[in-house]
Design a protein around this nucleic acid. Structure first.
Lengths: 217, 217
DNA sequence: GCTTAATGAAAACGAACGTTTGTATTATTA
DNA sequence: TAATAATACAAACGTTCGTTTTCATTAAGC
């Protein structure tokens, strides 16, 4: 399941006779590898992180690493799935996608997105930096996921325009801008470190909302 | 001059006895190397671009490349100087830094910055991606240059606040947001390709201004 | 004409890389 | 307990990397 969008084939561990307990422990170990490797990718960059680094960080023997993953690239792919999965799950679970009123929905989506982008700041920065490394196919899939997030905002803005509460010239453009703005903390943490999480969330929410609903704030 | 902030020592070509013509041709060739290498860095990434690639692209023999530059890293450093230099030159030459009225100055700086970020979209994207590769010292210097751009906007907003024409809660935060927004086209070109240059510039200017001067637009 | 700079081609360097292999060890199952 | 599958490990593979070196040639400056 975890390599549905990654890698080229099944890893050695997903043979037929494996019990459920074994599969679980296999996936758990794979997740550990991805998590630890992600931290290294974030700190040093993908190209500057060697499989030997990952071996040391996980405590798993270099050769044995390849029992759990097919390639270094696959680790990056698996790492890329973390963020959007968490975001979509949060939106669904909280029923934010079903809010009818455009203003309320915009505020709810925005708040959730800001919280997620803040908490995944490192992963997002890594995604900005390392997208190019992904194989073409997976890169496209990743950009498409981002495109869905943009479309979500675009649709809300269009609905707000229709009901007369927004007056945004170009909803598509505005949506693109918002999704970029969501990455503020990822891309400017070196300059924004003095704000607390809550300070940042409030300020960002206010700033972004003001460009869509100027009169309300 | 060109390696004032890069590399560790003087290259072979900048010895004492070299004539002015020789120095000029030396620097010209160095600039060609940096330019061609930049294109490769943009297309394939720094780590994925080998010195042999650069040799092929420039037509300069691999060993001979090291006559003009000290290291691969130095090429990246020199490439990083392109953008901010162009921006500062434009601001000075057009006298934008001397505009007294905050609204007029904001508009002028914004327009100039938008034009520059559009024209240097590839270089900026590369900077986002490859900053980490730079040696610590030069990375700091680069972030400081970005910090100056932020401060420029911050000061304008503060002046606008004082004269009562803006009402921005946190000028520092707003300035950071603006400078991020300037990178929209660099970071979202894959989604914004359908806009012409002028369409993009107008839309971006309007969107950014609206968050600072909501009532005017 | 002598010296020095510039250009070119080729080979070599040691280091580091991702990945594979063969073999050992441990756990599970029948 | 014997057989089988899952996991672990060390060593090695072949390649590529940034960089240096060597040698030969042409152009320019005093």
């Amino acid at each position: 399941m975890s390599d549905k969008n990654c890698g080229t084939g099944t890893s050695s561990g997903s043979g037929k006779k494996t019990s459920q307990r074994q599969q679980q422990s296999f996936q758990k170990k794979q997740a550990v590898i991805v998590k630890k490797a992600s931290k290294l990718f974030i700190k040093k960059g993908y190209a500057q992180t060697s499989m030997r680094d990952i071996s040391k960080a996980t405590g798993i023997n270099l050769g044995n690493l390849y029992y759990y993953i097919n390639s270094k690239e696959e680790i990056l792919c698996l790492a890329f799935n973390t963020y959007h999965a968490a975001m979509n799950e949060a939106l669904e679970q909280k029923g934010i996608l079903d809010i009818a009123d455009p203003v309320e929905q915009l505020k709810a989506v925005l708040r959730q997105a800001l919280e997620n982008t803040y908490d995944f700041k490192d992963d997002i920065l890594m995604m900005y930096r390392e997208t190019r490394v992904l194989p073409r196919k997976i890169m496209k899939a990743t950009l498409e996921k981002e495109g869905e997030a943009i479309k979500l905002f675009e649709d809300i803005i269009i609905r707000g325009n229709q009901s007369g509460v927004f007056r945004v010239h170009d909803p598509f453009f505005a949506a693109n801008m918002i999704v970029l703005q969501l990455s503020l903390y990822s891309l400017r943490r070196w300059n924004l470190g003095d704000y607390t999480r809550e300070e940042y969330l409030d300020l960002a929410e206010e700033t972004i909302l003001k460009s869509i609903i100027p009169e309300t704030v």
